[in-house]
């Protein structure tokens, strides 16, 4: 029986609970047992049960009272130590300034010899090398598929299916919010109006800085550079240009040349950047809407294009599920 501790119980944490329920028969058939959630923390409270929490009750309480229990905590690391678990699933909100609680939780779990699955981009963008080294030293599995492109399988694809390839570059759209805004601008809407619509539809935060200034896409570029290209880079190494300076004139000029403007993240031996680029209409990277897409240039296979939903409750949880199964397969 694998015991999970879920750190962060917002959309993605609750999505994971739903996905585990939906895959009940799958776990039964493959492993003969269900993964059990023995601990959950949100930003203020902690719920634990060494025999396994009643997750329907935890979700219901979170929905009703916005907390997972009455028990508050002051230090998330101490909350993690309140129960014995095998895998930490770290899905607390991303903090790209200092990694925040997520970085502390992941570090502590790895130091304690626990396996870790995360979709939290902050710790990976800031301390990738330190965390992977720590995991290696302590013999822990450390997986983070959902941190780039949500449901779009890119990291495990490169690590597993393309393991024999020399990957020369990855170029892609790694922020669905920016792509939604730019797609709307293609149709004549000004930036401010397109942003407002993205906020109303829930694609953009009230403070959209991380998205529109390219910071969110840059965190994913850092993760791919480290994970796929084995570079030792951090957030500050990425050359970042956002989309706020793109004018309707620029969009019209591009259209006159049968092109669109898209915010592209690019990683290669010589380039590490996020910037608006001119893309010919019909090129895979000219995709419209909120989808994420990546084009991998491999020396033997040539260009491989993948796309998928970059965010969403169940979509992101699906990436966590694939990491969980991979770890459980090894533990078996």
């Amino acid at each position: 029986m694998v015991r999970l501790f879920i750190s962060g119980f917002g959309t993605v944490g609750q999505g994971l609970v739903e996905v585990l329920k939906r895959r009940h028969d799958f776990f039964e058939n493959r492993f003969g047992a269900q993964p059990v959630v023995v601990g959950v923390i949100d930003s203020k409270t902690v719920a634990i049960d060494q025999n396994g929490l009643d997750m329907d009750a935890v979700v219901a309480r979170k929905t009703e009272k916005r907390t997972v229990s009455d028990q508050t905590y002051s230090d998330s690391v101490k909350a993690l130590d309140m129960v014995d678990y095998d895998i930490l699933v770290e899905v607390s909100p991303t903090n790209i300034k200092d990694g925040g609680t997520g970085l502390r939780n992941i570090t502590h779990a790895l130091e304690c010899g626990k396996d870790v699955i995360t979709v939290n981009k902050g710790p990976l963008a800031l301390k990738f090398q330190e965390l992977t080294d720590l995991a290696k030293r302590n013999g822990c599995k450390f997986r983070y598929e959902g941190s780039v492109g949500g449901a779009m399988p890119i990291i495990n694809l490169c690590h597993e299916n393309l393991v024999g390839e020399n990957i020369r570059s990855i170029r892609g759209i790694f922020n669905g919010t920016c792509n939604f805004i730019l797609s709307k601008m293609d149709n004549g809407q000004p930036f401010e109006q397109a942003l407002k619509e993205a906020q109303q539809l829930g694609y953009a935060e009230t403070d959209p800085t991380n998205d529109v200034e390219g910071y969110d896409a840059a965190t994913k570029v850092v993760i791919l550079a480290n994970a796929v290209f084995h570079r030792n880079v951090t957030f500050s190494d990425v050359k970042i240009t956002g989309i706020t300076g793109i004018t309707p004139d620029a969009i019209a000029q591009a259209a006159a040349h049968n092109m669109v403007i898209r915010l592209i993240g690019e990683i290669s031996e010589t380039r590490l950047e996020v910037a608006p680029r001119l893309i010919p209409i019909g090129h895979p990277l000219s995709i419209a809407g909120t989808l994420n897409i990546a084009q991998i240039d491999a020396d033997l296979a040539g260009p491989i294009t993948i796309n998928g939903r970059g965010a969403g409750k169940i979509e992101t949880a699906s990436a966590i599920l694939s990491d969980l199964i991979a770890i459980m397969d090894v533990r078996e």
């Binding site: 170029r171 240009t241 300076g245 793109i246 620029a250 591009a254 092109m259 403007i261 592209i264 910037a275 608006p276 680029r277 001119l278 893309i279 010919p280 090129h283 990277l285």
Partner: peptide, 10 residues
């Protein structure tokens, strides 16, 4: 240097 937005093709 001249504070302009630069957008290049692929």
């Amino acid at each position: 240097k001249d504070d302009m937005l630069y957008i290049r093709g692929l």
